[in-house]
């Protein structure tokens, strides 16, 4: 398993799918790229276990939310590129909304920071 850095948070169950879809919204990307993007965008707070990434990609692909195709990366390497499908977009919209609601609700329950 990955190292436990106190500044980093392991992903909640189910949130990885959401993040992958969100990342792919900006364009096709390969697995490593997706992992890096998530880490970068969360300013290195979110830790993506590369080992769990691929089963998640597999799952999304089987649900028809993403599509995959072999292609060439920026530095000329063969890689499998994932692309979000219309169904995936719809799913993302839905889940994003739900997530926001949940986050707000939990925030309210927990109260102001440091309180």
């Amino acid at each position: 398993m990955a190292t436990q850095d106190p500044g980093r948070i392991n992903l909640l169950q189910g949130t990885l799918d959401l993040l992958i879809l969100r990342t792919l919204l900006f364009g096709p990307q390969h697995g490593q790229g997706v992992a890096r993007a998530i880490q970068r965008q969360s300013e290195d707070v979110l830790l993506v276990d590369h080992g769990t990434l691929y089963p998640a990609l597999q799952r999304l692909e089987s649900k028809g939310w993403i599509e995959a195709e072999w292609g060439t990366s920026a530095n000329n390497r063969r890689a499998r590129f994932y692309k979000i499908t219309p169904a995936g977009r719809k799913q993302l919209m839905q889940e994003t909304g739900q997530w926001r609601k949940l986050a707000t609700a939990i925030g309210r329950v927990l109260g102001p920071e440091g309180g």
Binding site: H30, Q32, G33, A35, H50, Y54, R77, R78, R80
Partner: peptide
């Protein structure tokens, strides 16, 4: 699938 994992390792190592 194995090829994809292999590609991932190389991409990551390069990065």
């Amino acid at each position: 699938f194995q090829a994809e994992l292999e590609a991932h390792l190389q991409l990551e190592a390069e990065a």
